[in-house]
Simulated assay, not measured.
Amino acid sequence: MAGVYKLEIKESQAELKQLLGAQATATGKERMQLLYLLKTGQAATVQTAAQLLGRHRVTAQEWLRRYRVGGIESMLEVKVPPGRTRAIPDWAEKALAKRLQEPEGFESYGEIQEWLEAKLGVVAAYKTVHKLVYYHLASSLKVPRPVSVEQSTEQLSAFKKTR
């Protein structure tokens, strides 16, 4: 008969209910719920279970194929794509963070860009350097505030002593 699954679910209803409650992600809960629906008989076919979950029948069958091959661990495994490699590698980021802690620091993000290229051989865009330093490392450039040429150092030290 078409649509009837031929799968032996090894876990008991109680185990499945406990595993369903232990899932941290929505995808994990959906996949466990599929097994629970089939085990308890709330869904007689894979297509009915898929409709109850709001998923396509092929998706539910794929989850069951993974369960058949590798068990619950395989079914719950979510593959994460590797993504693009970072413009500034971790080792260069650590070296930059260490350099930013020094008292002299940098005067501009362009200077940081030049330092990365000259010392570490890492070529990165200005915007990338700015985002890394300002947002990710939460660091700032070590640029002193402008001081008036008319300002007297004696008056400044006297003011600091009275305050």
Rank of each mutant, 00 (worst) to 15 (best):
A43G: 14
A43T: 05
A44L: 13
T45H: 09
T45M: 10
T45Q: 07
Q47V: 14
Q47K: 14
Q47H: 11
Q47P: 08
T48H: 13
T48N: 12
A49Y: 03
A49R: 04
A49S: 09
A50S: 10
A50E: 01
A50N: 07
A50T: 08
Q51A: 13
Q51Y: 10
Q51R: 13
L53W: 07
L53T: 08
G54T: 05
G54F: 11
R55D: 09
H56R: 14
H56M: 07
H56V: 12
R57V: 13
R57E: 14
R57P: 03
V58E: 13
T59I: 11
T59R: 04
T59C: 09
T59M: 10
A60D: 00
A60L: 05
E62C: 11
E62T: 13
W63H: 05
W63I: 07
W63G: 01
L64D: 02
R65V: 00
R66Q: 09
R66W: 01
Y67P: 01
Y67D: 02
Y67L: 08
R68N: 09
R68H: 09
R68T: 03
R68L: 06
V69F: 08
V69E: 13
V69Y: 07
G70H: 05
G71P: 07
I72R: 10
I72P: 04
I72K: 07
I72T: 10
I72A: 03
E73N: 12
